[in-house]
Design a binder for these strands. Structure first.
Lengths: 210, 210
DNA sequence: CGGTTTACATACATTCTTGTTTGTATATAA
DNA sequence: TTATATACAAACAAGAATGTATGTAAACCG
């Protein structure tokens, strides 16, 4: 049978994206063929070519479904300034929230893994790097704003500027995400990620929590 | 002309490795063919197959020439405990030294870039991830030892354990290396990397340097 | 000095992958 | 109800990449 309804078609589109995620994860993007993806999605390459232009197109569809939302989410968590909780805890929460999401959301986790260690950033993929850098800049700015609020409220240790603190935090979290992803069995980083975040923020508090 | 001397042969071997570095860098590992590499090295695929089993073999040869030495170097810098300089400065210096090496040594820099964003860690490459994780563990341990010495000498802010400080430092540096590599034009991280390291270490000093 | 091995170049066969084209049954719109 | 566009499946053509097999001239060794 052919010619499904529009809903059915959208469903197969999603199936293809999900299949691509599984295939990319185990074979890496470059070694994944459209045949592999089609097989995993239980369709033929015809269906894949109907819904997507090529493999790169699938990759970007995959990214849009999880990578960007998570960035936005972290961004939002930092931007919504509920002034009753202290800014340092806000930073801590937004970082922990991201880790939580990665822990609970398999799709998110796998897409991150694909983008970090199963993708070669050349040619059509190179632009992604710039976008990541831009996102990082934005997030660092948001963190800096939070640190500035903390400084105003005298919650922050002196001497250090919100700018350098924000950069340090961003680099810390960036490293954490990378190790979190690479640490497949979870023994080294996954289980203690939140503790590490707490420690990191505590380093900045004028009155460290116990 | 064929049949070079042994020295000539070794030279072509190096030329092939150098060519592979250039090709991997621009095309990514998976899209680089042995033909590309041979062309860049001004030999034929015959020569490449004579010196190497396949592309993976070249990759590992490339890695051994720079990636491992740099790890060892950082490791050594941390391990040689010249007890006259304070441990925190030792950590700072070893991190800065690595950044220096990346700044000055083009080969080193490019190989790092290849391994970080031009390689998909699946199949034969997956084992590299484990090795990286192990190296990270070792380095974290060395940093922790330095922090412990700093604690004994009361150079370190209290409350925090050398263990969590070491993990935080390692994650920071890991993030820094990643951003350093991705920041191709250098505007965001490369030029201020050492400043960031200084700030990071200063956060731990009981008497922060100015 | 002659045989053997080395260090490649060249040619060949095979497999993989991609993009396109064609076919087709059915939803959908008019 | 019928024409058309949709949502695929299946077949096709072409190039690219790999590994191997063969050829060869010069270095090296006895």
């Amino acid at each position: 049978m052919v010619r499904k309804t529009k809903e059915d078609a959208e469903l197969t589109r999603q199936r293809i994206i999900d299949a691509a995620r599984a295939v990319f994860l185990t074979r890496g993007i470059s070694r994944s063929t459209l045949e592999h993806i089609a097989l995993e999605a239980q369709v033929t390459r015809g269906a894949v070519y109907w819904h997507f232009k090529n493999k790169t197109d699938i990759f970007y569809a995959l990214r849009d479904r999880a990578f960007l939302p998570l960035i936005d989410r972290m961004y939002d968590t930092l931007a919504t300034q509920t002034d009753d909780t202290d800014p340092l805890t806000q930073i801590e929460d937004s970082l922990c929230d991201t880790i939580n999401e990665l822990n609970e959301n398999i799709e998110m986790r796998q897409i991150y893994e694909i983008m970090m260690i199963k993708c070669e950033y050349v040619d059509e993929f190179a632009t992604v790097l710039q976008q990541i850098l831009n996102n990082c800049s934005n997030i660092t700015e948001k963190i800096q704003l939070a640190y500035e609020r903390a400084k105003e409220q005298s919650l922050l240790i002196p001497i250090f500027t919100p700018h350098e603190l924000a950069l340090d935090t961003h680099l810390f979290f960036s490293g954490l995400l990378h190790m979190w992803v690479k640490d497949a069995d979870g023994s080294r980083f996954r289980y203690q990620a939140k503790m590490l975040i707490k420690s990191h923020i505590n380093l900045r508090r004028i009155n460290p929590k116990t």
